[in-house]
Computed example of a mutant assay.
Amino acid sequence: MRVQRLAAALVTALLAGCGPATAATDDGPPVTARHVPPRAYAVGVRQIVVDPGGARPLPVTVWYPTESATPASAGPVVRPGAPVAAGRFPVVIYSHGLRSLPELHAPLTTRWAAAGFVVAAPTYPRTNLRARDFTRADVRNQPADGWRLIRHLVRLDTRAADPLAGHLDVARIAAAGHSAGGFTTAGMFTSGHSARLRAGIVIAGGGLAGSFAGPVAPLLFVHGAADAIVPESVGRAAYARSLGPAAFLSLPGQGHGEYLTPGRPGFAQVLATTTDFLRWTLYDDRPALRRLPADARLPGTTSLITRALPG
Protein backbone atom coordinates (compact mmCIF):
# COMPACT_ATOMS: atom_id res chain seq x y z
CA MET A 1 0.00 0.00 0.00
CA ARG A 2 2.89 2.35 0.68
CA VAL A 3 4.15 1.90 -2.88
CA GLN A 4 0.64 2.55 -4.19
CA ARG A 5 0.38 5.80 -2.22
CA LEU A 6 3.79 6.92 -3.47
CA ALA A 7 2.89 6.13 -7.05
CA ALA A 8 -0.50 7.83 -6.80
CA ALA A 9 1.19 10.94 -5.42
CA LEU A 10 3.67 10.72 -8.27
CA VAL A 11 0.85 10.89 -10.82
CA THR A 12 -0.60 13.96 -9.08
CA ALA A 13 2.77 15.69 -9.01
CA LEU A 14 3.65 14.89 -12.60
CA LEU A 15 0.27 15.85 -13.99
CA ALA A 16 0.65 19.17 -12.20
CA GLY A 17 3.67 19.77 -14.42
CA CYS A 18 7.41 19.88 -14.05
CA GLY A 19 10.35 21.24 -15.99
CA PRO A 20 11.11 19.71 -19.38
CA ALA A 21 14.07 17.40 -19.67
CA THR A 22 17.41 18.40 -21.11
CA ALA A 23 18.07 16.39 -24.25
CA ALA A 24 21.07 15.79 -26.43
CA THR A 25 20.80 18.00 -29.49
CA ASP A 26 23.12 16.33 -32.00
CA ASP A 27 21.50 14.58 -34.95
CA GLY A 28 23.69 11.52 -34.56
CA PRO A 29 25.53 9.54 -37.22
CA PRO A 30 23.93 8.59 -40.52
CA VAL A 31 21.36 5.81 -40.28
CA THR A 32 21.96 2.76 -42.45
CA ALA A 33 19.83 -0.31 -43.08
CA ARG A 34 20.15 -3.15 -40.57
CA HIS A 35 19.48 -6.85 -40.90
CA VAL A 36 17.14 -8.41 -38.36
CA PRO A 37 18.86 -11.16 -36.34
CA PRO A 38 17.71 -14.52 -37.78
CA ARG A 39 17.70 -16.27 -34.39
CA ALA A 40 17.62 -15.67 -30.64
CA TYR A 41 20.83 -15.07 -28.72
CA ALA A 42 21.99 -16.00 -25.27
CA VAL A 43 22.47 -12.93 -23.09
CA GLY A 44 25.44 -11.35 -21.36
CA VAL A 45 25.23 -8.82 -18.55
CA ARG A 46 27.64 -6.28 -17.09
CA GLN A 47 27.57 -3.25 -14.81
CA ILE A 48 28.86 0.21 -15.68
CA VAL A 49 28.67 3.57 -13.91
CA VAL A 50 28.08 6.87 -15.68
CA ASP A 51 29.90 9.83 -14.10
CA PRO A 52 31.21 7.83 -11.11
CA GLY A 53 32.98 10.88 -9.65
CA GLY A 54 30.19 13.35 -10.35
CA ALA A 55 27.40 14.75 -8.24
CA ARG A 56 24.92 12.26 -9.64
CA PRO A 57 26.63 8.94 -10.45
CA LEU A 58 24.42 6.56 -12.41
CA PRO A 59 24.90 2.78 -12.06
CA VAL A 60 23.69 0.95 -15.17
CA THR A 61 22.90 -2.70 -15.83
CA VAL A 62 23.60 -3.66 -19.45
CA TRP A 63 22.18 -6.79 -21.07
CA TYR A 64 23.48 -7.66 -24.54
CA PRO A 65 23.47 -10.49 -27.12
CA THR A 66 26.21 -13.10 -26.76
CA GLU A 67 27.20 -16.32 -28.50
CA SER A 68 28.34 -17.96 -25.28
CA ALA A 69 25.48 -20.40 -24.80
CA THR A 70 22.35 -21.81 -26.43
CA PRO A 71 19.20 -19.84 -25.54
CA ALA A 72 16.76 -21.76 -23.36
CA SER A 73 13.07 -22.08 -24.23
CA ALA A 74 12.07 -21.06 -20.69
CA GLY A 75 13.98 -17.78 -20.97
CA PRO A 76 17.39 -16.50 -22.04
CA VAL A 77 20.56 -17.93 -20.56
CA VAL A 78 22.27 -14.97 -18.87
CA ARG A 79 26.03 -15.00 -18.27
CA PRO A 80 27.84 -12.12 -16.54
CA GLY A 81 30.74 -10.79 -18.60
CA ALA A 82 30.19 -13.09 -21.58
CA PRO A 83 31.67 -11.89 -24.91
CA VAL A 84 29.44 -9.71 -27.05
CA ALA A 85 28.07 -11.38 -30.16
CA ALA A 86 29.43 -10.28 -33.53
CA GLY A 87 27.71 -7.28 -35.08
CA ARG A 88 26.18 -3.95 -34.08
CA PHE A 89 22.96 -3.89 -32.08
CA PRO A 90 20.39 -1.14 -31.50
CA VAL A 91 20.13 0.17 -27.94
CA VAL A 92 17.14 0.34 -25.59
CA ILE A 93 17.31 2.61 -22.51
CA TYR A 94 15.05 0.99 -19.87
CA SER A 95 13.80 2.98 -16.86
CA HIS A 96 12.50 1.37 -13.66
CA GLY A 97 9.64 2.69 -11.52
CA LEU A 98 9.47 3.95 -7.94
CA ARG A 99 11.08 1.68 -5.36
CA SER A 100 12.34 -0.65 -8.06
CA LEU A 101 15.60 -1.85 -9.63
CA PRO A 102 16.72 -2.85 -13.15
CA GLU A 103 17.05 -6.53 -12.21
CA LEU A 104 13.38 -6.67 -11.24
CA HIS A 105 12.55 -6.08 -14.92
CA ALA A 106 14.91 -8.78 -16.24
CA PRO A 107 12.11 -11.10 -17.48
CA LEU A 108 11.37 -8.46 -20.13
CA THR A 109 14.75 -6.83 -20.70
CA THR A 110 16.72 -10.08 -21.09
CA ARG A 111 14.24 -11.28 -23.71
CA TRP A 112 14.73 -8.05 -25.65
CA ALA A 113 18.48 -8.61 -25.48
CA ALA A 114 18.01 -12.16 -26.75
CA ALA A 115 16.09 -10.69 -29.70
CA GLY A 116 19.12 -8.62 -30.73
CA PHE A 117 19.14 -5.43 -28.65
CA VAL A 118 21.53 -3.96 -26.10
CA VAL A 119 19.40 -2.94 -23.12
CA ALA A 120 20.91 -0.37 -20.74
CA ALA A 121 18.94 0.11 -17.50
CA PRO A 122 19.95 2.90 -15.07
CA THR A 123 19.46 2.65 -11.32
CA TYR A 124 18.11 6.12 -10.64
CA PRO A 125 19.77 7.66 -7.58
CA ARG A 126 16.74 8.89 -5.63
CA THR A 127 13.86 6.65 -6.72
CA ASN A 128 15.36 3.15 -6.66
CA LEU A 129 14.49 0.47 -4.10
CA ARG A 130 17.64 1.07 -2.02
CA ALA A 131 17.79 4.88 -2.25
CA ARG A 132 18.78 6.44 1.08
CA ASP A 133 17.24 9.79 0.17
CA PHE A 134 14.21 8.57 -1.76
CA THR A 135 12.04 11.27 -3.31
CA ARG A 136 9.46 10.79 -6.04
CA ALA A 137 9.96 14.39 -7.18
CA ASP A 138 13.35 13.37 -8.55
CA VAL A 139 11.57 11.70 -11.48
CA ARG A 140 11.68 15.10 -13.17
CA ASN A 141 15.49 14.80 -13.32
CA GLN A 142 15.54 11.27 -14.74
CA PRO A 143 14.99 12.10 -18.44
CA ALA A 144 18.25 14.07 -18.29
CA ASP A 145 19.88 11.02 -16.70
CA GLY A 146 18.67 8.97 -19.66
CA TRP A 147 20.32 11.41 -22.03
CA ARG A 148 23.54 11.32 -19.99
CA LEU A 149 23.52 7.57 -20.44
CA ILE A 150 23.01 7.88 -24.19
CA ARG A 151 25.95 10.27 -24.49
CA HIS A 152 28.06 7.88 -22.39
CA LEU A 153 27.19 4.96 -24.67
CA VAL A 154 28.07 7.01 -27.75
CA ARG A 155 31.51 7.63 -26.27
CA LEU A 156 31.88 4.06 -25.03
CA ASP A 157 31.28 2.69 -28.53
CA THR A 158 34.48 4.39 -29.67
CA ARG A 159 36.69 3.13 -26.80
CA ALA A 160 38.66 0.29 -28.32
CA ALA A 161 39.40 -1.31 -24.95
CA ASP A 162 35.75 -1.62 -23.94
CA PRO A 163 34.00 -4.94 -24.70
CA LEU A 164 30.98 -3.11 -26.13
CA ALA A 165 33.04 -0.89 -28.46
CA GLY A 166 31.96 -1.32 -32.04
CA HIS A 167 28.86 -3.27 -31.04
CA LEU A 168 26.47 -0.38 -30.26
CA ASP A 169 24.31 1.01 -33.05
CA VAL A 170 24.06 4.43 -31.45
CA ALA A 171 22.08 5.83 -34.39
CA ARG A 172 19.19 3.53 -33.41
CA ILE A 173 18.08 4.02 -29.82
CA ALA A 174 14.71 3.48 -28.13
CA ALA A 175 13.60 4.46 -24.63
CA ALA A 176 11.25 2.32 -22.55
CA GLY A 177 10.11 2.17 -18.94
CA HIS A 178 7.47 1.13 -16.43
CA SER A 179 5.42 3.41 -14.15
CA ALA A 180 7.68 6.31 -13.09
CA GLY A 181 10.04 4.91 -15.71
CA GLY A 182 7.26 5.34 -18.26
CA PHE A 183 6.96 9.02 -17.31
CA THR A 184 10.77 9.22 -17.55
CA THR A 185 10.64 7.72 -21.03
CA ALA A 186 8.01 10.21 -22.18
CA GLY A 187 10.13 13.03 -20.75
CA MET A 188 13.01 12.11 -23.05
CA PHE A 189 10.92 13.03 -26.10
CA THR A 190 11.15 16.80 -25.72
CA SER A 191 11.76 19.62 -28.16
CA GLY A 192 15.22 19.41 -29.69
CA HIS A 193 15.90 15.82 -28.70
CA SER A 194 18.44 13.96 -30.79
CA ALA A 195 17.23 11.95 -33.76
CA ARG A 196 19.20 9.05 -32.28
CA LEU A 197 16.09 8.43 -30.17
CA ARG A 198 13.86 6.68 -32.69
CA ALA A 199 11.09 5.07 -30.61
CA GLY A 200 9.55 4.85 -27.15
CA ILE A 201 7.59 2.35 -25.06
CA VAL A 202 5.60 3.76 -22.12
CA ILE A 203 4.36 1.01 -19.78
CA ALA A 204 1.84 2.00 -17.09
CA GLY A 205 2.98 5.61 -17.35
CA GLY A 206 2.09 8.94 -18.93
CA GLY A 207 3.57 12.20 -20.13
CA LEU A 208 5.73 14.83 -18.48
CA ALA A 209 5.57 18.55 -19.17
CA GLY A 210 7.17 19.13 -22.57
CA SER A 211 6.84 15.51 -23.66
CA PHE A 212 6.12 14.44 -27.25
CA ALA A 213 7.91 17.25 -29.03
CA GLY A 214 10.90 17.41 -31.33
CA PRO A 215 11.56 14.81 -34.05
CA VAL A 216 8.52 12.56 -34.41
CA ALA A 217 9.14 9.01 -33.22
CA PRO A 218 6.75 6.04 -33.04
CA LEU A 219 5.43 5.35 -29.54
CA LEU A 220 3.85 2.28 -27.96
CA PHE A 221 1.78 2.59 -24.78
CA VAL A 222 1.02 -0.47 -22.61
CA HIS A 223 -1.47 -0.18 -19.74
CA GLY A 224 -3.63 -2.29 -17.48
CA ALA A 225 -7.25 -1.15 -17.72
CA ALA A 226 -7.75 -1.70 -13.97
CA ASP A 227 -4.51 0.03 -12.91
CA ALA A 228 -5.27 1.72 -9.58
CA ILE A 229 -1.82 3.33 -9.26
CA VAL A 230 -1.52 5.07 -12.63
CA PRO A 231 -5.04 4.98 -14.10
CA GLU A 232 -5.32 3.89 -17.72
CA SER A 233 -6.86 7.29 -18.48
CA VAL A 234 -3.43 8.83 -17.81
CA GLY A 235 -1.82 6.59 -20.39
CA ARG A 236 -4.60 7.20 -22.89
CA ALA A 237 -4.23 10.96 -22.45
CA ALA A 238 -0.51 10.63 -23.21
CA TYR A 239 -1.32 8.53 -26.28
CA ALA A 240 -3.72 11.24 -27.46
CA ARG A 241 -1.05 13.94 -26.97
CA SER A 242 1.71 12.06 -28.75
CA LEU A 243 2.68 12.96 -32.29
CA GLY A 244 3.04 10.64 -35.23
CA PRO A 245 2.65 6.85 -35.32
CA ALA A 246 1.43 5.36 -32.05
CA ALA A 247 -0.23 2.28 -30.60
CA PHE A 248 -2.01 1.58 -27.32
CA LEU A 249 -2.05 -1.95 -25.90
CA SER A 250 -4.67 -2.31 -23.17
CA LEU A 251 -5.02 -5.24 -20.76
CA PRO A 252 -8.63 -5.43 -19.47
CA GLY A 253 -8.95 -6.25 -15.80
CA GLN A 254 -5.21 -5.96 -15.14
CA GLY A 255 -3.43 -3.69 -12.71
CA HIS A 256 -0.09 -1.94 -12.56
CA GLY A 257 2.24 -4.54 -14.01
CA GLU A 258 1.40 -8.17 -13.29
CA TYR A 259 1.44 -8.69 -17.08
CA LEU A 260 5.23 -8.19 -16.97
CA THR A 261 5.66 -11.53 -15.15
CA PRO A 262 6.23 -14.65 -17.30
CA GLY A 263 3.28 -17.01 -17.12
CA ARG A 264 0.79 -14.33 -16.11
CA PRO A 265 -2.07 -13.40 -18.47
CA GLY A 266 -0.93 -10.92 -21.08
CA PHE A 267 2.83 -11.45 -20.70
CA ALA A 268 3.19 -13.30 -24.01
CA GLN A 269 1.24 -10.57 -25.83
CA VAL A 270 3.19 -7.73 -24.19
CA LEU A 271 6.50 -9.44 -24.99
CA ALA A 272 5.59 -10.15 -28.62
CA THR A 273 4.16 -6.66 -29.20
CA THR A 274 7.06 -4.77 -27.62
CA THR A 275 9.68 -6.95 -29.32
CA ASP A 276 8.17 -6.56 -32.78
CA PHE A 277 7.68 -2.83 -32.15
CA LEU A 278 11.42 -2.57 -31.42
CA ARG A 279 12.26 -4.71 -34.46
CA TRP A 280 10.18 -2.45 -36.66
CA THR A 281 11.45 0.88 -35.31
CA LEU A 282 15.12 -0.03 -34.79
CA TYR A 283 15.71 -2.66 -37.50
CA ASP A 284 13.24 -1.32 -40.10
CA ASP A 285 11.58 -4.73 -40.03
CA ARG A 286 8.29 -4.32 -41.94
CA PRO A 287 7.14 -7.92 -41.33
CA ALA A 288 7.39 -7.16 -37.58
CA LEU A 289 5.17 -4.11 -38.10
CA ARG A 290 2.60 -6.25 -39.88
CA ARG A 291 2.68 -8.76 -37.01
CA LEU A 292 1.73 -6.20 -34.35
CA PRO A 293 -2.07 -6.68 -34.53
CA ALA A 294 -1.74 -10.46 -34.18
CA ASP A 295 0.91 -10.09 -31.46
CA ALA A 296 -1.47 -8.03 -29.36
CA ARG A 297 -4.70 -9.92 -29.98
CA LEU A 298 -6.03 -12.21 -27.26
CA PRO A 299 -9.77 -11.63 -26.70
CA GLY A 300 -10.53 -10.88 -23.08
CA THR A 301 -6.85 -10.35 -22.23
CA THR A 302 -5.55 -7.63 -24.56
CA SER A 303 -6.76 -5.09 -27.09
CA LEU A 304 -4.87 -2.77 -29.44
CA ILE A 305 -5.64 0.56 -31.07
CA THR A 306 -3.26 2.29 -33.45
CA ARG A 307 -2.82 5.67 -35.11
CA ALA A 308 -0.91 6.49 -38.29
CA LEU A 309 1.12 3.30 -38.41
CA PRO A 310 2.57 2.72 -41.90
CA GLY A 311 0.55 0.39 -44.12
Rank of each mutant, 00 (worst) to 15 (best):
P265E: 00
G255H: 03
C18F: 06
V31Q: 13
S303Y: 07
A69M: 07
T12N: 11
A137S: 12
F134K: 02
L153P: 05
M188W: 10
A217L: 13
P310N: 02
G207F: 09
G166H: 09
Y283C: 11
V84Y: 03
P265A: 05
G187S: 09
A55D: 11
G17F: 06
R151H: 14
R241C: 04
L271A: 13
G116K: 07
D138T: 08
R286N: 13
M188T: 15
V78H: 06
V77R: 13
V139I: 13
V118D: 14
T302F: 00
A176F: 10
A113L: 02
V31P: 08
Y64I: 01
A82P: 06
A144S: 15
H152M: 07
L219T: 12
S100L: 04
I305H: 06
V216C: 11
S211A: 14
A7M: 12
P71F: 05
T135M: 05
A33N: 13
Q254N: 03
G28Y: 00
P231T: 05
W63G: 01
H167I: 09
V92I: 15
H35A: 15
A238T: 07
G181T: 08
D145G: 10
A180H: 07
A114S: 15
N128L: 11
V202P: 01
A161D: 15
A296N: 10
G28N: 05
V154P: 04
I93W: 09
T25P: 02
S95W: 09
T127E: 13
I201Y: 00
F267I: 08
R297W: 12
V49A: 05
A213P: 01
A272H: 02
R136K: 12
P30H: 04
W63S: 06
F212I: 03
P215K: 12
G300C: 02
L304I: 13
T273R: 02
T190K: 06
R56E: 12
G210T: 00
D27E: 14
R34K: 14
S179D: 03
L289H: 10
L249F: 07
P310H: 01
G300P: 01
A268R: 14
Q47M: 12
A217P: 11
S211G: 12
G81I: 04
L10E: 02
G116E: 12
L129H: 11
L14N: 07
R148F: 10
P218E: 08
R99Q: 14
G53R: 15
G266I: 08
G87A: 11
A199N: 10
L10A: 09
Y41L: 03
V170E: 13
N128R: 08
G205H: 00
G19R: 15
T135F: 05
A131S: 14
Y94C: 07
A171K: 04
A121G: 08
G311K: 08
G87I: 09
L304A: 12
A240T: 14
I93A: 06
L14D: 05
A72S: 11
A165S: 15
L271V: 11
H178T: 09
P218G: 10
L156C: 04
G75N: 00
E103P: 11
A204E: 10
G210Q: 02
A225V: 01
A85F: 05
P107A: 01
Y41I: 03
A106E: 12
T32K: 08
R130F: 15
H193K: 14
T190P: 03
V11M: 03
V170Y: 03
A106K: 06
Y64P: 05
R290A: 15
E232V: 13
L14C: 06
R140W: 13
R130I: 14
V78F: 02
F221P: 00
L14S: 06
G192L: 04
